[in-house]
Protein backbone atom coordinates (compact mmCIF):
# COMPACT_ATOMS: atom_id res chain seq x y z
CA UNK A 1 0.00 0.00 0.00
CA UNK A 2 1.16 3.52 -0.79
CA UNK A 3 -1.70 5.43 0.84
CA UNK A 4 -2.79 5.13 4.47
CA UNK A 5 -5.83 6.82 6.06
CA UNK A 6 -4.89 8.35 9.39
CA UNK A 7 -6.92 9.88 12.20
CA UNK A 8 -5.20 12.21 14.62
CA UNK A 9 -6.12 13.91 17.90
CA UNK A 10 -4.29 17.09 18.87
CA UNK A 11 -4.74 19.33 21.86
CA UNK A 12 -3.15 22.76 22.11
CA UNK A 13 -3.18 25.73 24.44
CA UNK A 14 -2.78 28.91 22.41
CA UNK A 15 -2.13 32.40 23.77
CA UNK A 16 -3.95 35.09 21.87
CA UNK A 17 -4.45 38.82 22.13
CA UNK A 18 -5.95 39.01 25.62
CA UNK A 19 -7.05 35.40 26.07
CA UNK A 20 -5.86 31.83 26.47
CA UNK A 21 -7.55 29.29 24.24
CA UNK A 22 -7.75 25.52 24.15
CA UNK A 23 -7.98 23.90 20.72
CA UNK A 24 -8.95 20.25 20.57
CA UNK A 25 -9.11 18.59 17.16
CA UNK A 26 -9.86 15.16 15.79
CA UNK A 27 -8.77 15.30 12.17
CA UNK A 28 -8.00 13.17 9.15
CA UNK A 29 -4.96 12.98 6.94
CA UNK A 30 -3.65 10.76 4.18
CA UNK A 31 -0.10 9.43 4.43
CA UNK A 32 1.13 8.86 0.89
CA UNK A 33 4.44 7.73 -0.56
CA UNK A 34 5.31 10.10 -3.40
CA UNK A 35 8.52 11.35 -4.99
CA UNK A 36 10.51 8.92 -2.86
CA UNK A 37 9.30 10.24 0.48
CA UNK A 38 6.30 10.22 2.75
CA UNK A 39 3.74 13.02 2.48
CA UNK A 40 1.09 13.64 5.09
CA UNK A 41 -1.75 15.41 3.31
CA UNK A 42 -4.48 17.03 5.38
CA UNK A 43 -8.04 16.00 4.66
CA UNK A 44 -9.65 17.82 7.56
CA UNK A 45 -8.13 20.34 7.86
CA UNK A 46 -7.48 20.23 4.13
CA UNK A 47 -5.00 23.06 3.75
CA UNK A 48 -1.88 21.46 5.12
CA UNK A 49 0.81 19.03 3.96
CA UNK A 50 4.20 17.94 5.22
CA UNK A 51 6.85 15.47 4.15
CA UNK A 52 9.59 13.33 5.63
CA UNK A 53 11.95 10.55 4.78
CA UNK A 54 9.94 8.39 7.18
CA UNK A 55 6.28 8.31 8.09
CA UNK A 56 7.15 9.47 11.60
CA UNK A 57 9.13 12.44 10.32
CA UNK A 58 6.26 13.51 8.06
CA UNK A 59 3.87 13.21 11.00
CA UNK A 60 6.07 15.30 13.32
CA UNK A 61 6.49 18.01 10.71
CA UNK A 62 2.74 17.97 10.02
CA UNK A 63 2.10 18.35 13.75
CA UNK A 64 4.46 21.29 13.98
CA UNK A 65 3.00 23.02 10.93
CA UNK A 66 -0.52 22.56 12.32
CA UNK A 67 0.56 24.18 15.59
CA UNK A 68 2.27 27.04 13.78
CA UNK A 69 -0.90 27.65 11.78
CA UNK A 70 -2.79 28.04 15.08
CA UNK A 71 -0.14 30.49 16.31
CA UNK A 72 -0.44 32.50 13.08
CA UNK A 73 -4.21 32.70 13.50
CA UNK A 74 -3.81 33.80 17.13
CA UNK A 75 -1.62 36.65 15.89
CA UNK A 76 -4.08 37.55 13.17
CA UNK A 77 -7.20 37.60 15.34
CA UNK A 78 -7.90 40.68 17.43
CA UNK A 79 -10.08 38.81 19.91
CA UNK A 80 -11.14 35.33 21.00
CA UNK A 81 -14.30 35.21 18.80
CA UNK A 82 -12.16 36.13 15.80
CA UNK A 83 -9.62 33.43 16.62
CA UNK A 84 -12.36 30.86 17.07
CA UNK A 85 -13.82 31.71 13.67
CA UNK A 86 -10.44 31.53 11.93
CA UNK A 87 -9.63 28.15 13.47
CA UNK A 88 -13.03 26.69 12.67
CA UNK A 89 -12.82 27.92 9.08
CA UNK A 90 -9.30 26.49 8.74
CA UNK A 91 -10.34 23.12 10.13
CA UNK A 92 -13.64 22.81 8.29
CA UNK A 93 -12.20 23.80 4.90
CA UNK A 94 -12.02 20.19 3.79
CA UNK A 95 -10.20 18.99 0.73
CA UNK A 96 -12.79 16.96 -1.17
CA UNK A 97 -10.30 15.30 -3.52
CA UNK A 98 -8.15 14.26 -0.57
CA UNK A 99 -11.25 12.99 1.22
CA UNK A 100 -11.94 10.70 -1.75
CA UNK A 101 -8.36 9.45 -1.63
CA UNK A 102 -8.70 8.90 2.12
CA UNK A 103 -11.92 6.93 1.67
CA UNK A 104 -10.34 4.93 -1.13
CA UNK A 105 -7.37 4.02 1.09
CA UNK A 106 -9.80 3.04 3.85
CA UNK A 107 -11.68 0.76 1.42
CA UNK A 108 -8.40 -0.85 0.40
CA UNK A 109 -7.55 -1.54 4.04
CA UNK A 110 -11.03 -2.91 4.68
CA UNK A 111 -10.85 -5.21 1.67
CA UNK A 112 -7.88 -6.98 3.23
CA UNK A 113 -6.27 -7.36 -0.21
CA UNK A 114 -3.07 -5.85 1.12
CA UNK A 115 -1.76 -5.60 4.64
CA UNK A 116 -0.35 -2.37 6.02
CA UNK A 117 3.42 -2.36 6.16
CA UNK A 118 5.49 -1.55 9.21
CA UNK A 119 5.25 0.94 10.94
CA UNK A 120 1.61 1.41 9.94
CA UNK A 121 0.78 -2.10 11.08
CA UNK A 122 1.91 -1.11 14.58
CA UNK A 123 -0.38 1.91 14.86
CA UNK A 124 -3.55 1.71 16.92
CA UNK A 125 -6.74 1.29 14.90
CA UNK A 126 -9.60 3.75 15.32
CA UNK A 127 -12.99 3.29 13.77
CA UNK A 128 -13.62 6.06 11.27
CA UNK A 129 -17.31 6.28 12.09
CA UNK A 130 -16.60 6.64 15.81
CA UNK A 131 -14.00 9.35 15.28
CA UNK A 132 -15.50 11.91 12.91
CA UNK A 133 -13.63 15.14 12.25
CA UNK A 134 -14.40 17.74 14.88
CA UNK A 135 -12.87 20.86 16.37
CA UNK A 136 -13.44 22.56 19.69
CA UNK A 137 -12.14 26.02 20.51
CA UNK A 138 -12.71 27.08 24.11
CA UNK A 139 -11.59 29.92 26.28
CA UNK A 140 -9.38 28.63 29.06
CA UNK A 141 -9.02 31.87 30.97
CA UNK A 142 -12.75 32.17 31.66
CA UNK A 143 -13.60 32.50 35.36
CA UNK A 144 -15.85 29.44 35.23
CA UNK A 145 -13.14 27.21 33.79
CA UNK A 146 -11.96 24.40 36.03
CA UNK A 147 -8.72 22.53 35.53
CA UNK A 148 -7.93 18.93 36.46
CA UNK A 149 -4.99 16.76 35.55
CA UNK A 150 -7.20 14.30 33.71
CA UNK A 151 -7.67 16.92 30.99
CA UNK A 152 -4.10 16.33 29.84
CA UNK A 153 -3.74 14.28 26.67
CA UNK A 154 -0.73 13.63 24.49
CA UNK A 155 -0.87 13.77 20.71
CA UNK A 156 -2.38 10.66 19.22
CA UNK A 157 -2.62 9.24 15.74
CA UNK A 158 -3.99 6.01 14.43
CA UNK A 159 -4.80 4.08 11.31
CA UNK A 160 -8.44 4.42 10.38
CA UNK A 161 -10.50 1.30 10.06
CA UNK A 162 -14.07 0.73 9.05
CA UNK A 163 -16.71 -0.11 11.62
Amino acid sequence: MNNYPLIFAFRDAVSGNGYLSGVTATGRALMAHEDGQWWMYGVCPGGIAESGSTMQEAYLRFRNTYKNALFDMAEEAKSFPGFKELVRNFFNDKHEEEEENWQSALRELRSGKSDPATPFSELPRWKAESNPPEISVTRLDAASQTFVASQNHGDLYALAEAA
Binding site: G47, I48, T65, N68, A69, D72, E75, E76, D93
Partner: peptide, 17 residues
Protein backbone atom coordinates in the same frame (compact mmCIF):
# COMPACT_ATOMS: atom_id res chain seq x y z
CA UNK B 1 3.60 36.28 4.81
CA UNK B 2 2.48 35.28 8.28
CA UNK B 3 4.99 34.66 11.05
CA UNK B 4 5.42 30.99 10.20
CA UNK B 5 4.02 30.49 6.70
CA UNK B 6 2.80 32.00 3.49
CA UNK B 7 -0.98 32.48 3.38
CA UNK B 8 -2.50 32.13 -0.09
CA UNK B 9 -6.12 32.99 -0.84
CA UNK B 10 -7.96 31.94 -3.98
CA UNK B 11 -11.32 30.65 -5.06
CA UNK B 12 -12.88 31.20 -1.62
CA UNK B 13 -10.24 29.06 0.11
CA UNK B 14 -7.34 30.07 2.32
CA UNK B 15 -4.15 27.98 2.24
CA UNK B 16 -2.37 28.90 5.46
CA UNK B 17 0.58 26.56 5.53
Amino acid sequence: FSTHNRVITFNGHVYRT
